[in-house]
Nucleic acid binder design. Sequence first.
DNA 1: CTGAAAGCGCTAACAT
DNA 2: ATGTTAGCGCTTTCAG
Lengths: 343, 343
Amino acid sequence: MTGIKDVAREVEMSTATVSRALRGLPGVSEETRTRVQETARRLGYVPSPSAAGLASGQTRTVAVIVPFVTRWFFAAVVQGAEEVLRERGYDLLLYNLAGDPSARHRVFETNLLTKRVDAVLVLSLKPSEEELQRLRRLGRPVTVVGADLPGWATVRIDDRHAAATAMEHLIDLGHRRIGYVGGATEGVLDFTAPTARLAGYRDSLLAAGLVSEPGLEANGEFTFAGGMRAGRELLERADPPTAIFAASDEMAIGVLRAARELDLQVPDDLSVIGIDDHEMAGFFELTTVAQPVHEQGRVAAQQVLRSLTLPEWEPEQVLLPTRLVVRSTTAPPPTARGRTRGR
Amino acid sequence: MTGIKDVAREVEMSTATVSRALRGLPGVSEETRTRVQETARRLGYVPSPSAAGLASGQTRTVAVIVPFVTRWFFAAVVQGAEEVLRERGYDLLLYNLAGDPSARHRVFETNLLTKRVDAVLVLSLKPSEEELQRLRRLGRPVTVVGADLPGWATVRIDDRHAAATAMEHLIDLGHRRIGYVGGATEGVLDFTAPTARLAGYRDSLLAAGLVSEPGLEANGEFTFAGGMRAGRELLERADPPTAIFAASDEMAIGVLRAARELDLQVPDDLSVIGIDDHEMAGFFELTTVAQPVHEQGRVAAQQVLRSLTLPEWEPEQVLLPTRLVVRSTTAPPPTARGRTRGR
DNA sequence: CTGAAAGCGCTAACAT
DNA sequence: ATGTTAGCGCTTTCAG
């Protein structure tokens, strides 16, 4: 295994110069640098991250902590983060909690990450107070994606506003009875988005002078199957809603299926809107509020890398824009159709 | 930052003993071991992977090379691998190629991985000859998941057989015109599954004495949207098939949608079967040939870890079982219904 | 069962 | 612009 010494011997220089030349540090003549680079390549020299890490205190590695890699949203964020990390020569260490408390414990409560990574990306989770303390004690840049965590660097969308956008669309169409399919606002995984989206739903009802009925809110667990169950629950009521706002596209698609099983035509009998612009939303012609998922991963990675370069950088709360994407699952409600058509 | 020296000082022993005690090596009295462990925990000692790696030559890290993390199949394999790696104290370094040739180049052609990981998992890709040589030169255990690569350790299903299982089900139901929706059998990413599944399709036709018509084979690119296009193409023919076998559930779901758009009832007018048992298959009541995806990740990780422990272990070709899951998208063809009903 | 000492392969002052 | 010299924090002989 050729090491830096071999390169140094070959070019008849010290290892220090070789190291400087290879890392693009100043204080090396251009001629030397080229010669070193060529020799290194010719010899197939690859630096040892362990040695470099030990000597420099930097691992050039970023940890990404994700609740479930198998969920499209998280995978897409990881993909975005990986892109920019790779471009900048950083490695991505993946920690998938997958609902396993011991995994969560291992990642947060042992100080495992301390000497292992230069920075941390936490996806969607809202860490507990104790976990936050430990994260802070890491003394490394941490960015949280998709959760609202005052005092921390975050990259997310304005979930409340996104929900309001969806609701506004339904209300503008003339809907007055609007159901909500969301997810647990507290639980093992502590996400903040469900709470904010529910708040946006209720806000909008209030603002439109509509009453919020607990019976019109159902739990879809942020999955297809859960969305289908929740949709069925709402649609089988004696007084079903004319529109359903689901806090994620996966749940919205579940609602579509529930509607179909109950022989309801979408959007004639029922309007459905989601949030995400999931890769399948277009496929189902689902109207939704799009959020830049992949981009959130990219921005988060850029943010921690910047903190690494400019340590005095203040943690920023980045809000990425959302956008209403109208497809074919929303329309005026049956009763209002006469009035609103063609206006 | 407390290091091994701090622990050694505290227990009044050498760092060598502390190191041995903490790693569970023999030659340490039980009493010493407990005392060391307790002290280490009390002091919040966390070993430095860089230092340990430099001294031992082992990184306790495994690289996982994945074509697209955002595809459910790959994400599920990653999740399985991560589980067993974590249990055994290994870290997972994720390399997502995402169709980026420069990413692929970086991972395979620089010897980047050499000093960085103890083992490598390659998902579904069939590396080129040159890439294989480089992988071999790493001198580290490599397991390939989901591809058929003679001479290498692999974990996969028998794709040809899985396809035959699907076809047999359709043929048993009485179908005689069966369409196929698959994906490119060659291309940038070089997967082997598409080829094997297509072969299984053609084999089965032959074995049943049916002719294979090129016009009944369409490319669905292994995506929902592609499956929908391919399905439409087949179903809009003058002589459409009575059943379609899609090489993945995602494409099968696309076919379902195409059928719906063309006002074909599934399974009355058209039978559809897929492969995977994707998380959405149950949701769509899709009949499919299930493969243990998550388990493939687990087995692959176990395999490389075993090679790490037992270096003389011979690379194994593990075939995991598949199983026909009959749901509601398959039935006898329209013409045969009279004959086959109630038999 | 435990300790002393010599690295692992780099980087980072500090010199020159 | 380049070299010298110390480590970084562990593991691993080799002794005892």
